[in-house]
Amino acid sequence: MQDFELWWLLIFPVFFGLGWLAARVDMREVLGQAKHVPASYFTGLQALVDDETDRAAAALAEVVRHQPRAAELQVALARLYRKRGEHDLAIRQLTRLLQDHADDLTPSQRDAARFELAQNFLRAGLVDRAEEILVKLGQGALAHEARKCLLEIYQQERNWPRAIELARELKSEDFSFQHELAQYHCELAQGALIKSDFDGARRHVADALAASRRSCRASLIAGDIHLAQGEVDEAIRAWQGIESQNPDYLSLAAERLLDAYERQGRAAEGVVLLRGYLRSYPQLELLDVLYPKIAALHGDAAALEFLRETVRGRPSLTGLGRLIEAQLPGLEPEQRVDADVARTLVQSHGKRLNVYRCKRCNFRSKVFFWHCPACGEWESFTPNRTETQ
């Protein structure tokens, strides 16, 4: 037993010696390779760190010129070109890589180059060429990313049936695409309603609600379908259902609800309903809809009292501007001039601040969108304007 242990004690120094020798050999190889890396490579890296993309692109392009087979570097440079908006340079470089060095590329390198090329085609507006590449990549290692880009293309083209099919393929535990699927079906329902295809519109609304029970847009369209077919009570119920889905979207149904109640000769009931909504969910849009309706039904004095109550409860420039305007007829001529100046300033400032905002990218617009034109997110716009900078 002692002889055996002594034998192993003699082996240990040999193992340490071999490890030291291997480390020395590896270090010499690394240092040798580092000597062959062009100085422009390090210049480009430093420029990237300093966020000087123009200098970085020029330096890395010089490296690529000396090492045209460095596929990963060429793809990285093309991505840098895309970031700078120089899509023509990126497309030219990647096309040359795929044509002149196709045999030298591994399958993963080839797919990465093609995916980057598709991205540049897409950003350059060459959608057909991007789609052709992405469809071919739909079965490889980049299949998931390729399908997400295809989904973006189908949204741009308003190819909603294909977008629905692809969103269902991409659906996973991490991302359900329920809002997207609901919106795609709502787009189809809206198109069918415009063509008076009520059966088709109803089917798409049902599919939208199956994808997302909280789809306020589906409820809005459902009410429009009922109203178009003379089913006023059903339309009112559909629009009232938005309160339980998301009360922020009640403002989109306000005008519809008042019109429906007026058709039934119950305009006063509609006003009472919306005044209740305004007390529970203060929104500038509800104020805009209610004020002229109250004035028409109950007179200017009642509308003025409504404005006072609303502005005192929740002050806003829009409400204040309307309140000043409502009091103008009862003022003396000199007072009216001063009040009119104040009204003009308040309303002008209010209009400048009154915007819809995307909750994801903070894009601001005077018009409400279901689909943000800046970041492409669905249902990210709140339908209620804000009065903040």
Rank of each mutant, 00 (worst) to 15 (best):
F4E: 12
L10P: 03
I11S: 11
F12I: 15
P13E: 03
V14I: 15
F15H: 09
G17S: 10
G19P: 02
G19W: 08
L21P: 00
A22L: 12
D26E: 10
R28S: 06
V30K: 10
G32L: 07
A34P: 01
K35T: 05
V37G: 07
A39G: 06
G44I: 08
A47I: 06
R55W: 01
A58F: 02
E62D: 14
V64Q: 09
E72M: 08
V75L: 12
A76Q: 15
L77W: 13
A78G: 13
L80P: 04
Y81E: 05
R84T: 11
G85W: 13
T95M: 13
D103E: 08
P107L: 01
S108V: 03
R110G: 02
R110M: 01
D111E: 15
F115W: 09
E116D: 03
A118V: 03
Q119T: 03
A124L: 04
L126N: 06
A130F: 00
V135D: 07
G138K: 02
A141H: 00
A143T: 01
C149W: 07
E152Y: 11
E157Q: 09
R158Y: 00
I164K: 00
R168Y: 03
E169K: 12
E169R: 12
L170T: 02
K171H: 08
S172D: 15
S176Y: 05
L181I: 14
Q183A: 12
L188A: 03
L188H: 04
Q190D: 11
I194W: 11
D197Q: 15
H204N: 14
V205F: 04
A210T: 13
A211H: 07
R217V: 08
R217F: 05
S219E: 06
L220D: 03
G223P: 05
A228M: 09
D233N: 10
E234H: 05
R237L: 08
W239F: 08
G241F: 00
N246C: 11
P247F: 04
L250Q: 06
S251N: 09
A253I: 12
D259T: 15
Q264D: 07
Q264S: 11
L273D: 04
Y277W: 12
Y281D: 00
E285L: 05
L286E: 07
D288T: 11
D288I: 09
L290W: 08
E309G: 02
V311N: 03
R312H: 09
S316R: 01
L317Y: 01
T318Y: 02
R322Q: 05
G330I: 00
R336Y: 01
D338Q: 11
R343L: 08
V346I: 14
K351L: 07
R360K: 15
R360Q: 15
C361P: 14
N362S: 15
V367N: 02
F368I: 05
H371T: 12
H371P: 11
A374S: 15
G376E: 10
W378Y: 06
E379C: 12
P383C: 13
N384Y: 13
